[in-house]
Design a protein around this nucleic acid. Structure first.
Lengths: 191, 191
DNA sequence: CGGCCTTCCGAACGATCGTTAGCGTACCCA
DNA sequence: TGGGTACGCTAACGATCGTTCGGAAGGCCG
């Protein structure tokens, strides 16, 4: 149902990702849809709605991807799968992910705060895995888990800038994981 | 000389970082300066000028920071210092760095292409260090240097979102470096 | 003194912005 | 058959956008 509405939402995500929220006008969206700009207000109440919707979908996708990871796996394995999950969402929904990571700050009022809380919750799920790994010894017991989580989240959050839709995200995630687990040290690395 | 001009450039970087390029109007800049908006055109030809200037300064700062690293050091040590250098620039010139990383895509025409080339050159300087380290054995000889460079550049490029001006960036960089060099593996990490 | 340079003013320009209003048409379901 | 629902039109609104213009202070240098 409401096929035109979802088409609009998807288009908005794409243009917001391409040109930014403030760089995309209602007129741009209407023209891309082959319609007069006033007509869009049969579907939405405001431009902010479209931004909020794209972002809600992003939050949902990222959280759901994490939810699919079995909780009984050891922490390092969950970290590997979490990285896989995140990169897959970014590649499969590049527009939404881009809006989620970069355009959220143009949300106004209460919605901005709600979104920030949601985002902190997502990042906290990553941090928890590193903490748990350090505490139960599946990761180094002297691990700087805050820095490790920040490193992985940086790679995850930056991915929208270089990932393309047909990348093998599982393999990429595993490569990052391998680097992270074993390090890059050579036999003659200076201390 | 031209104190008002530099004041305007600095202010523009700050507001562009806070509200985005398209989210900042000439009127906003004028009001922050306590001046009528028409008056700004005594100093600039267009709003684009301000964006371009902030970005040129960012490019200059980042490259100069890399230039200060002695070339005769082993690759891993240069990587450590490069991470230090990058984070220091971000913390010390947070506004400019933010514009450099996030707002550059609102550059128009030829300037956008020039900037992209400049940016690729910067990232290539990072990649070269990892390649060299793998080739001469100061890093693991089986290193995935592309992925390793991407991981470090992600952390570097994402830093503007969480770094604050008074952070001890040298220590932070060394933490990241330690993680990257030795990995996070625990004694009982599953393969 | 005279002229330039910097800085700012006030007013206006055409364009574009997000949004609203009233009115039409086609279709689906009761 | 009739009423709602989905979708679109044209026209207009007040606001704001980046930019231009002519004029006028004040300071510096010849």
């Amino acid at each position: 149902m409401a096929t035109r509405r979802t088409e609009l939402t998807r288009l908005a995500a794409r243009l917001f990702a391409e040109r930014g929220y403030h760089g995309t006008s209602i007129g741009d969206l209407a023209k891309a849809l082959g319609v007069q700009k006033g007509s869009l207000y049969a579907h939405i109440d405001s431009k902010q709605d479209l931004l909020h919707e794209a972002m809600s979908e992003g939050a949902r996708a990222f959280h759901e991807a994490l939810d699919a990871i079995p909780e009984d796996l050891p922490a390092p394995e969950r970290i590997r799968l979490a990285l896989r999950a995140h990169l897959r969402v970014v590649a499969e929904q590049l527009d939404v992910a881009t809006v989620f990571v970069r355009e959220w700050r143009y949300l106004e009022g209460e919605r901005a705060e709600d979104f920030l809380a949601e985002r902190r919750r997502y990042e906290e799920r990553f941090r928890a895995m590193f903490r748990e790994g350090r505490e139960n010894g599946t990761l180094r017991t002297d691990l700087d888990d805050q820095a490790a989580a920040l490193l992985v989240l940086s790679a995850a959050n930056w991915a929208y800038t270089w990932l393309h839709a047909d990348a093998d995200t599982d393999e990429l995630a595993d490569r990052f994981y391998a680097l992270l687990i074993d390090g890059i040290r050579g036999y003659s690395t200076p201390v």
